[in-house]
Amino acid sequence: MFQQAFAAHAAIIAEDDPSILGLAVAGSWLTQELDEFSDLDLLLISNTKVGGNKEQMMAYANKFGNLLNAFTGEHVGEPRLLICLYNNPLLHVDIKFITADELKTRIENPVLLFDRDGSLQQIIDSSSYQFPHPDHQWIEDRFWTWVHYALLKIGRGEYMEAHDFLAFLRMVVFGPLLHIKNNNLPRGVRKVETTIALEDFQQLQQTLATNNRASLLSALENAVQLYRSLRNELFTVDTTLQHQTEEVVMQYFEEVRNKTV
């Protein structure tokens, strides 16, 4: 695959730079799921902190290939990330710039393409990774207020905003919880078409709407039903349910549904 060829070339370039302790690869490479549509996730580990310094990050990225465009990842909460588009081959590459100490905190065990002195493998062997899971209480404390927000937008006729909100719920709530139900890592809605049960996917599809009031209300009602089902199945007794908020918001749901427009 061309991603593997790019990574091998990047490792050769990185190994010639004494400021770089190692280069690793993560993402779909780890699960052997690379295909022609896969991007490439690299970890560049340096002896001094580079992450957050765009000029230095760009300088390293330019060495790896024909860099068309790059920007930092503040929009996903990660200023150490440089999101790159290379040409020949046309390839999306995410490069995360970290120090050896920062390698101790990670969401997966990367594959080391090179390890200058063996210290990075020692860090991986002596520490553990933890993929972030959704906080059930955090979701429950917000869900019903989110539903009320969606009802306001539908009631006012802000249908595009309501569409975006339902997409937000799929990404933040339903995708992760359905993945957990299906014994997957909670990666938003990534690969839900192929990695969750057909019945679950069909329920998720029912939160999609066309651009009209009736369809949006139906999709939102389906979202509520899906949430209640997932909450019953996955949440523990330690989660405090917001019953009063739920009841009041669902009463308002009926008011909005029954309004003449």
Rank of each mutant, 00 (worst) to 15 (best):
residue 258 N to A: 04
residue 152 L to A: 12
residue 52 G to T: 12
residue 30 L to A: 10
residue 111 V to E: 13
residue 85 L to A: 04
residue 18 P to D: 13
residue 195 T to S: 04
residue 69 N to V: 02
residue 257 R to W: 00
residue 228 R to I: 00
residue 184 N to W: 01
residue 74 E to C: 08
residue 235 F to N: 02
residue 55 E to M: 12
residue 97 F to H: 00
residue 235 F to I: 01
residue 208 L to W: 10
residue 142 R to C: 12
residue 168 F to E: 14
residue 189 V to I: 15
residue 79 P to I: 07
residue 90 L to R: 02
residue 245 T to P: 09
residue 179 H to Y: 09
residue 117 D to V: 02
residue 162 A to L: 10
residue 216 L to D: 01
residue 213 R to M: 03
residue 10 A to Q: 06
residue 112 L to F: 05
residue 150 A to Q: 13
residue 205 Q to T: 11
residue 47 N to P: 03
residue 93 V to L: 07
residue 226 L to T: 00
residue 21 L to Y: 02
residue 28 S to C: 07
residue 134 P to W: 11
residue 35 D to R: 09
residue 143 F to I: 08
residue 80 R to G: 06
residue 68 L to M: 07
residue 94 D to A: 04
residue 159 Y to S: 10
residue 176 P to E: 11
residue 80 R to P: 05
residue 122 Q to S: 05
residue 23 L to S: 01
residue 77 G to I: 06
residue 213 R to P: 01
residue 23 L to M: 03
residue 176 P to I: 11
residue 56 Q to A: 15
residue 14 A to T: 03
residue 70 A to R: 01
residue 90 L to A: 03
residue 94 D to E: 13
residue 13 I to D: 00
residue 187 R to G: 10
residue 188 G to V: 09
residue 30 L to W: 07
residue 66 N to F: 08
residue 108 E to K: 01
residue 77 G to P: 09
residue 134 P to Q: 11
residue 19 S to H: 11
residue 29 W to I: 10
residue 181 K to V: 07
residue 194 T to V: 14
residue 225 Q to C: 01
residue 136 H to K: 11
residue 100 A to S: 05
residue 103 L to A: 01
residue 248 V to G: 03
residue 24 A to N: 04
residue 144 W to V: 14
residue 4 Q to H: 15
residue 29 W to T: 15
residue 171 M to L: 12
residue 88 N to I: 08
residue 114 F to N: 02
residue 104 K to N: 05
residue 30 L to M: 11
residue 223 A to L: 01
residue 135 D to L: 13
residue 8 A to R: 12
residue 122 Q to A: 05
residue 30 L to G: 10
residue 1 M to W: 05
residue 86 Y to C: 01
residue 77 G to L: 06
residue 53 N to H: 14
residue 40 L to S: 14
residue 108 E to Y: 03
residue 23 L to R: 01
residue 10 A to V: 06
residue 190 R to G: 08
residue 84 C to P: 01
residue 8 A to K: 12
residue 217 L to H: 06
residue 18 P to K: 05
residue 104 K to G: 04
residue 59 A to Y: 12
residue 6 F to N: 04
residue 103 L to K: 00
residue 250 M to A: 04
residue 243 H to T: 15
residue 217 L to D: 05
residue 76 V to N: 01
residue 160 M to L: 14
residue 36 E to A: 14
residue 14 A to V: 04
residue 211 N to F: 08
residue 149 Y to H: 12
residue 107 I to L: 11
residue 71 F to N: 09
residue 64 F to W: 05
residue 76 V to A: 02
residue 121 Q to A: 03
residue 182 N to V: 04
residue 223 A to N: 00
residue 187 R to S: 13
residue 124 I to Q: 13
residue 12 I to A: 12
residue 164 D to P: 08
